[in-house]
Design a protein around this nucleic acid. Structure first.
Lengths: 329, 329
DNA sequence: TTGAAAGCGCTAACAG
DNA sequence: CTGTTAGCGCTTTCAA
C-alpha cells in the first residue's frame, strides 16, 4: 500500500489541506506545523502522486515534443536543449517522432492532448491546416522551432533561413568563388527548401552572378542524397569551384563522393555546410558551415512556452563556423 | 469547459460505467448501446482524459528512459528504437538525460516515480546501489540496456562486450595484424571498459601475441578523446599496423589525427570501430566496425518491460560491418 | 446487459 | 494559521 497525503496528515495531526500547502510551498502555517509535517513525511517516506496532482490541479508538468526524426544530429541537439531547460524548469518531456507522417503526427497530437501536457513544441515541419487546427483547439501553449506558420500564428524560434543561406553563399563569393553549386532541399519545402534557395539566389544576383538551374541539385538532408547530389553537380557543372550544402549531413555525403573520386577539398573544390552539428566538426577536412544555435533554440522554445503575456517570435543569430573545407581563390 | 465521460453518458442515455466499458473495449453491452454511445462521443467530440484514467486505473501508459547522454549517435539510435516500439504498444516515453550525474539520476528517478510511469529503461550506465535500491522500491518493471547488474538482477538486453571485443580483435589478427593498439574506455568502467579490455586481451593471448600496456590508450568514447588517444598510440608504438577503437566516434577522432598527419587509412594503418552508428558509414574511409543492433535493442527493451512471467535476459548478436578502414597484410 | 456508488490522491475554495 | 468539503474524470466492484 502506498502512502498518501492523508496518511501524512493523520500522522502529523493536521488536515490534508495543511500538508498540501506545505509540500506546495504555499503560505499559511506555522513553523512548528511545517516541522511536524516534514517529520511525518520523512518517517513515512511519503512521495506525492503526480497523477493525482495533475487531475486535481490541472497541470501535468509535462510537455510534448514533436519531431520529424530522431536520428539526425539536428534533432538530437534540439532535444538535448529542450530536455535540459525543461528539467531546469521542473518539466518532463515526452518525445514524439512523427516520421514526417501525417497520420502519425495526428495520432501523437491526440495522445498529447489526452495526456493533458502543459505545452507542445513542434519542430522542423510545416504546420498543415489539420495540425494547426488541432493544436489550436487544444488550448495550450505551442511553440514552433525551425518553422513558422503565418496561418496560425504560433510563436516560433528559428534562424532566418533566407538570410542564413545568403550569408553562406556570400561567404563563398567573398572568397573569390564564381561558379557555385547548391545542394538544397526541394523547392516545394516551405521551411528548409524555398527560403534557402531564395537566399542563395539573391546572393548570386547581388554579386552580379548568373543563376543557372544546372547548379542546383536536390536532396533530403541526409547522407546518401548528398552523395547523389554531388555526383550530379560534378558531372553537370564545368568549372565548379564551390558548393553550398543545405545540411552538414549532405555535405558529408558530398565529401564522400569527392573523396571517392579523388577530388580534393578544399584544393579542388570548396564546400560549406549548414547546421554546425558535430558532423561538421568530425568531417575530414573539418567542415566550414553555417552555424545554427540548435541547443539554445531548444532551451529558448521551452522558455517561450511558459512566458506570460504576449510571446514574441525569435530569430536566432546565425554565423559562419570557419574550418577547413573552404579556400579563397 | 471540456467534455467528459459523464456528458457522453447523459447524452446517450446510459450510465458512465457503460461508456467506460465501451471506450475500453470491455464486454457487457448490446450492439445498440455501443452505437448510441459512439454516436454521442462523435457528436460531442469527447476525448478521454488520460490523467484521470491514470489515477483511477493505476496505469499511465508512459515509460521513462534514463540515458547518460542525448547527443551521441548511440543514444539517438537507442531512443529511436525505444520510441518506435513504445508507440506501437501504446506507450509514451519520457526522456531523462542523466548526464552521468548521480544527483541528476536520483532526481529523475524520483520524478518518474511520482509520475507513476509504468516502467523504466535504464541504459549504458552502471547501476549503483543507490539507483538499484530506489528502482527496486518503485516496484515497477525495469529493463537495463547495454549494462547489467548482478547485484539487483534486473533483466537486461545487451551485446556481450567481451566477446564482441574479442571478435573485433580477432578480425584484425586474422587480417595479418600483429601489432594492434586499443583505444578503450577506462578499465574502471565496468560496462564498456573492463569487459572489452578483457576481450581484446584474450584475443591477443589466444593468438600467442604479447600484451603490452603501451598499446592501450584510454578515452571517453567521444571524438576529442579519440584524437588524443591516437596521438598517444602513434607516438608510442613502433610498427603499429592496426587499432581497435571502442566507439565509432573515437574512431573518427583517430581518423582525424591520422588524416592530419597524412597517415593513410587503411594503407598505413587499419582501424576498426565499435557500435556501427551512422558515424561509421559517413567516415572517410567508411569505417569497418563492430556492429551492435542498437535500434533493435531499444525495441526489445520495451517488449521485455511488459512481458508477463519471468523475463529472460537477452544477449544480442554482434557482427562485423566490413567497410574500408581495414586491410589485410 | 446495465447502473449506482465508492474510490484513486490531491487541490482549492470557503469558512472559521 | 488551519480544517471542511467539494470536486478533478475515470474505473471498478457489487448488485440488479
Amino acid at each position: 500500500m502506498t502512502i498518501k497525503l492523508s496518511d501524512v496528515a493523520k500522522k502529523a495531526g493536521v488536515s490534508s489541506a495543511t500538508v498540501s500547502r506545505i509540500i506546495n510551498n504555499l503560505s499559511g502555517y506555522s513553523d512548528e506545523t511545517r516541522r511536524k509535517v516534514e517529520t511525518a513525511i520523512k518517517e513515512l517516506g511519503y512521495k506525492p502522486n503526480a497523477v493525482a496532482r495533475g487531475l486535481a490541479g490541472g497541470k501535468t508538468h509535462t510537455i510534448g515534443v514533436l519531431q520529424p526524426s530522431l536520428s539526425s544530429r539536428f534533432s538530437a541537439e534540439l532535444i538535448h536543449g529542450i530536455e535540459n531547460e525543461a528539467h531546469r524548469c521542473g518539466y518532463s518531456v515526452i518525445i514524439c517522432n512523427t516520421d514526417s507522417n501525417g497520420e502519425r503526427t495526428m495520432e501523437y497530437l491526440r495522445i498529447l492532448s489526452e495526456k493533458r501536457v502543459d505545452g507542445i513544441i513542434f519542430a522542423s515541419e510545416w504546420v498543415t491546416g489539420e495540425y494547426g487546427g488541432y493544436l489550436q483547439d487544444m488550448g495550450i501553449p505551442v511553440v514552433l522551432v525551425s518553422t513558422h506558420s503565418p496561418q496560425f500564428g504560433f510563436p516560433y524560434v528559428r534562424v532566418d533561413d533566407c538570410q542564413a543561406a545568403y550569408t553562406a553563399t556570400r561567404y563563398l563569393i567573398d572568397g573569390g568563388h564564381r561558379r557555385i553549386g547548391f545542394i538544397s532541399g526541394r523547392p516545394e519545402d516551405p521551411i528548409a527548401g524555398a527560403p534557402r534557395i531564395a537566399g542563395f539566389t539573391s546572393a548570386l544576383k547581388d554579386a552580379g552572378l548568373p543563376v543557372d538551374d544546372k547548379f542546383f541539385a536536390y536532396g533530403d538532408f541526409h547522407f546518401n542524397s548528398g552523395i547523389a547530389a554531388m555526383e550530379t553537380l560534378w558531372s553537370r557543372c564545368l568549372g565548379l569551384t564551390a558548393v553550398f550544402t543545405s545540411s552538414d549531413e549532405m555535405a558529408l555525403g558530398a565529401l564522400a563522393f569527392l573523396h571517392e573520386n579523388e577530388i580534393k577539398v578544399p584544393d579542388d573544390i570548396s564546400l560549406i555546410g549548414y547546421d554546425d552539428t558535430l558532423d561538421a566538426l568530425m568531417a575530414m577536412p573539418a567542415l566550414t558551415t553555417l552555424h545554427q544555435p540548435i541547443f539554445e533554440m531548444g532551451g529558448k522554445a521551452v522558455q517561450m512556452l511558459f512566458e506570460r503575456g504576449p510571446v514574441n517570435n525569435i530569430i536566432m543569430q546565425h554565423s559562419i563556423s570557419e574550418r577547413k573545407s573552404v579556400r579563397t581563390i
